[in-house]
Write a protein that binds this DNA or RNA. Sequence first.
DNA 1: TTACCCATATTGTAATATAATATTTTTTTA
DNA 2: TAAAAAAATATTATATTACAATATGGGTAA
Lengths: 239, 239
Amino acid sequence: MARIENLNLSQRVTNELGKAIIAGVYGEGSGLPTEAQLCTEYGISRTAVREAVKMLAAKGLISSRPRQGIRVEPPENWNLYDTSVLGWMFESSPSLLVLKEFLQMRLAIEPQAAALAAKHGSPEAIAQIEVALNAMDNAAQTDGSIHQPDVEFHTAILLASGNRFFYQLRDFISTALNVSFQYTTNAKDSLQTIADEHRKIYQAIKNGEAERAKNMMAYLIDEAMAYIELKIAESELSA
Amino acid sequence: MARIENLNLSQRVTNELGKAIIAGVYGEGSGLPTEAQLCTEYGISRTAVREAVKMLAAKGLISSRPRQGIRVEPPENWNLYDTSVLGWMFESSPSLLVLKEFLQMRLAIEPQAAALAAKHGSPEAIAQIEVALNAMDNAAQTDGSIHQPDVEFHTAILLASGNRFFYQLRDFISTALNVSFQYTTNAKDSLQTIADEHRKIYQAIKNGEAERAKNMMAYLIDEAMAYIELKIAESELSA
DNA sequence: TTACCCATATTGTAATATAATATTTTTTTA
DNA sequence: TAAAAAAATATTATATTACAATATGGGTAA
């Protein structure tokens, strides 16, 4: 979807409406204004409004029927694995509890992906993991940002799993990581520790040690989980 | 999306184009006819065509730009967790290899979901699992179809996990199960065996034994995996 | 009271026109 | 002749208007 400036009219409206829906501006059940009202509200033609409505419907956020209008679908029908929907969710409520659910998903997916990568990963795909890993090392030593290569490391493993459903979750995982970063401190010596832990995963994959790769990855994510659960406990105390 | 008869024009066109795209009718990179051509081809107005195009774009299948036309996005950008996209995939290529990828995903998700259900599942959610389980038992004893309650059993566990991202995968899991059913024989005595294995998972969840629930679920899916791998080996031999 | 029918509001579909955009061709100029 | 500029062209993007289909609610008649 590129940058916001590049979006056309209906895409911009899709964005605004999508955010509003997820933020709960329009009540569950039957909410949204009629197409005509949206036209005047945004000062655009019905064509653009309808295209936005169709896109949101395709993402499971709304449904529209003649005479009845446009209504918000119940949240369990929202397509959470759609990148836009995911982004809107975190713009509206970047809560620790959602982050915990993210980590539970990562804990399900990534260790398995690492195991598959160890078993069936092509040499090129594994080389790609190493590239990201070296960039992490480099960033840790030169005090640069470790975020980008970190995301690339995890994405490369998903690709190396050879399973398209795992790789499809790359945006999901990236979003989870980006949100996690907001809560981590990044003391300078800990950066190298993180890079070292990632290297262990890489080594296991490269050596074809599926179980070991799986366990290392689970350990890594579990650490993040423990940290977040601590934060949640803290915030509950202060509340 | 309900039944096909209930769909409106643009939704029907979305379906047809979606299927065609995934079946590979239009070459990768730049393929589709122009909007004008689609209008005459289907005998409909540009409005309907455009709405279909927007919906497919929202699902990541295509993108369109002025002067350049409509082009098929690379498959790794397709939103595979969209129910429609998933359905189209299996209509076009119900292969054993895709089914194996499905099972790899289930092996990642469902054991974790069962563990979470054991840890945090609400009594109502767990009761729902039992309802499905009893229906399975019933079907096994009266020689009925075990499919529907089987799907409900797995869905109920995803719900009981309390993680919206897991529950969101219910359609994905259902599809995987439905495809699996096409390859299984269902000897009458084996039905009761299957139901019993499911009961073990339920018992573990109900007793709060997270590790046990996880292992039981993993065992169940692993059995299916072994069966599919056998089938794959067979088909490779005959080829 | 019940059944039927009609008015009405809202989305669904169509047709047409103009704008924006990017490719290709042509023309101009050095 | 080659390169740059400009014009023609094809295609999607947006707007406008009109009518059709549909379901809701109210009113009318039996």
